[in-house]
C-alpha cells in the first residue's frame, strides 16, 4: 500500500498546486522552434529539380502521407486542408516526442489540448459555413428533411447534434491528454517499482509508437469532421438519380 501511495504522490501534489504552469509555455515554444527550424531546413532544399537534402525528403514524405489520407477520407477537394492538417500533425508529433526524453510534455497538459481542440472545431465550423453557407450549415445539424409534425424530431436531432459537436472538444483533447499523460504515469510507476532501476525505459518504443498514432489520430479525426461538415447536403438526394450528375468526382469515393 505504501508503494502505491508513494507512486502517486507527485500527482496528488500537482493536483493541489493551483498556479500557472509556466513550463508549458517554454516547452510549447520549444516545440514551435523545432517545427519551424525543420521547415526552414526543408525549405532550403526546394531549389533543385530533385530533392536531395534529407529534411526536404522527409517533409515530402510527410506531405504525401497526409495528402493521401486526406484524399482518401474527404476526396480530391480536400487537398486545400492539407496545410492545416500538416501543421497539427507536426506540432502534436513533436510535442509528444518531447516527453520521451525531456521532463515536461506540452501535450500532456490538458489546457494546451483543449486550446488545440477549440482551434480544430472552430476551423471545421468555419469551413462548413464556407462550403454550405451559414443557413445551410445550421440546417445540416437538423438532420434530413422531415415534413409535418416531424419538425419536433428535427428539433431534437438539432439539440443532440449541437451537444455532440461540443463533445468533440472534450473527446479530442481528453484522448491526447489521457494517452500521453497516462504513458508518463505508467513510466513513473515502473521507475519506482524497484529502487535504482529505471524499468520505465523499457516502455520507450511503445511510447514512441503512441506519439505517432496520436498525432495521426487527431489529424484523421479532423479529416472526418471536415468531410462531414463540408459535404454538400444535396448529395444524398442525387443518389436516387440514374447517374445524371456525374460532374462530381467525389461520388466515386462515397
Amino acid at each position: 500500500m505504501d508503494s502505491f501511495l508513494h507512486a502517486n504522490l507527485p500527482l496528488a501534489e500537482a493536483a493541489k498546486s493551483e498556479g500557472i504552469g509556466w513550463n508549458i509555455f517554454v516547452y510549447s515554444g520549444l516545440t514551435f522552434a523545432i517545427v519551424f527550424g525543420f521547415v526552414a531546413l526543408a525549405r532550403k532544399g526546394l531549389k533543385g529539380r530533385v530533392y536531395t537534402s534529407l529534411p526536404t525528403r522527409l517533409a515530402e514524405h510527410l506531405f504525401l502521407f497526409l495528402e493521401g489520407m486526406t484524399v482518401n477520407v474527404i476526396g480530391p477537394q480536400g487537398r486545400k486542408f492539407v496545410p492545416f492538417l500538416l501543421a497539427l500533425w507536426s506540432f502534436i508529433f513533436v510535442g509528444n516526442l518531447m516527453g520521451l526524453l525531456l521532463p515536461e510534455t506540452p501535450t500532456a497538459d490538458w489546457s494546451l489540448n483543449i486550446a488545440m481542440a477549440v482551434i480544430t472545431v472552430v476551423y471545421v465550423q468555419w469551413e462548413g459555413i464556407k462550403a454550405n453557407g451559414l443557413v445551410g450549415h445550421i440546417k445540416h445539424f437538423a438532420g434530413p428533411k422531415l415534413g409535418g409534425a416531424m419538425v419536433v424530431i428535427s428539433g431534437l436531432i438539432f439539440v443532440v447534434e449541437i451537444i455532440s459537436e461540443l463533445m468533440k472538444l472534450v473527446s479530442l483533447s481528453l484522448r491526447l491528454y489521457g494517452n500521453i499523460h497516462g504513458g508518463h504515469l505508467v513510466r513513473e510507476s515502473l521507475d519506482t517499482l524497484i529502487a535504482g532501476i529505471p524499468l520505465g525505459g523499457l516502455l520507450l518504443p511503445l511510447k514512441f509508437f503512441t506519439c505517432i498514432i496520436q498525432a495521426f489520430v487527431w489529424t484523421i479525426l479532423t479529416c472526418t469532421y471536415l468531410a462531414i461538415a463540408t459535404a454538400h447536403g444535396h448529395d444524398d438526394e442525387h443518389e436516387g438519380d440514374h447517374g445524371g450528375h456525374g460532374h462530381e468526382p467525389e461520388l466515386a469515393h462515397a
Binding site: 502517486n8 482518401n72 481528453l174 494517452n179 497516462g182 484523421i220
Partner: peptide, 28 residues
C-alpha cells in the same frame, strides 16, 4: 482508415475511465 477510426472511438472509453481514475486519485 475505418478500422483505426473504430479503434480510436473504442479507446476513448478507456481514456475517460482513466481520467476519472486520475481525478479520484487526488481524493486519496
Amino acid at each position: 482508415n475505418a478500422m483505426l477510426l473504430a479503434l480510436v472511438f473504442l479507446e476513448l472509453v478507456f481514456i475517460l475511465t482513466f481520467v476519472i481514475g486520475i481525478l479520484l486519485v487526488g481524493k486519496i
